[in-house]
């Protein structure tokens, strides 16, 4: 029993050590020269453009549902006019970034994990390495940079679509013009709402890319390991998103709200 626990802890510590080494190798390769621009653009397209529909639909529904859920409580309190502001602040600060990141963890981290895992199984990564090319620069650096750039952009787009969903939901029961609704939304926003949210989505994006690449790059050689890499990438990336969110909210509170 104790032996199993020790083995478990040792494996966990080894995993952390491996991730640190992988991070150091990633960091070193950023400055190794010869950034793969074409692959970076391709990844931005794959990660960003191809996830836009999913993020858009999810955000739209979230905006719509939030208004439907919030309305009765705010009407009871006589604060129905606060609906646009409540939705905007909660969506921009928290719900939009986290929902987008979780969707991206499910779609992007798993896809990167499975793709690199399958490249590992079929010896494509080994082939790059023994040819004298740099697989880390081509496969890992580009993907992590692409997720770090595209997740914030997707989050911003998701926020806008979510607020639009809220506008439509509000118009089911009440009547509010589009310009008045968006004026209320924008006027309720502050720099301290927007900036920390964007910054944390950069970290969410980095975590999604890093975890996906790490899990895929370090998968074992076997078809089963591709599935394990994809699954493990989603679980770990989702967990990291909440950890980063918890840290980000503390830092934001200290910097902006005190």
């Amino acid at each position: 029993m104790a032996e199993q626990a020790i083995t478990g802890w040792r494996r966990w510590a080894e995993g952390i050590g491996e991730q640190c080494v992988f991070f150091a190798r990633f960091f070193r390769n950023i400055f190794a020269g010869g950034f793969e621009w074409s692959e970076f653009v391709r990844q931005c397209y794959e990660i960003g453009y191809r996830s836009m529909m999913l993020v858009g639909i999810t955000s739209f529904i979230m905006g719509l549902v939030l208004i439907v859920q919030l309305r009765p409580s705010l009407v009871d309190l006589g604060a129905a006019s606060m609906l646009p502001k409540t939705l905007t602040v909660s969506f921009i600060r928290e719900i939009g970034p986290v929902i987008t990141a979780i969707i991206c963890a499910g779609k992007i981290a798993s896809s990167i994990g499975a793709e690199l895992g399958s490249m590992k199984v079929t010896e494509q990564i080994d082939a790059m390495e023994v040819s004298g090319a740099n697989p880390l620069q081509y496969l890992v650096v580009t993907r992590i940079f692409a997720t770090s750039l595209m997740v914030p952009l997707l989050s911003i787009i998701g926020d806008a679509i979510g607020l639009f969903g809220g506008f439509l939901a509000l118009n089911i029961t009440d009547s509010i013009s589009f310009s008045l609704y968006f004026n209320k939304c924008i006027s309720s926003l502050d720099f301290s709402d927007f900036l920390p949210a964007v910054v944390k989505t950069v970290f969410f994006g980095f975590a999604i890319g890093f975890v996906g690449c790490y899990k895929g790059y370090h998968s074992n050689k076997g078809t089963e390991s591709v599935g394990i890499a994809a699954n493990s990438a989603v679980v770990t990336a989702s967990l990291w998103i909440f950890v980063i969110d918890a840290i980000a909210v503390q830092i934001t509170s200290i910097l902006f709200y005190h």
Binding site: T122, E123, Q124, D126, V130
Partner: peptide
């Protein structure tokens, strides 16, 4: 490695 060619069993095409 630039002077050595390695042909993998599977071909290992990208």
């Amino acid at each position: 490695r630039m002077k050595i060619g390695f042909l993998f069993q599977s071909g290992a095409l990208y």
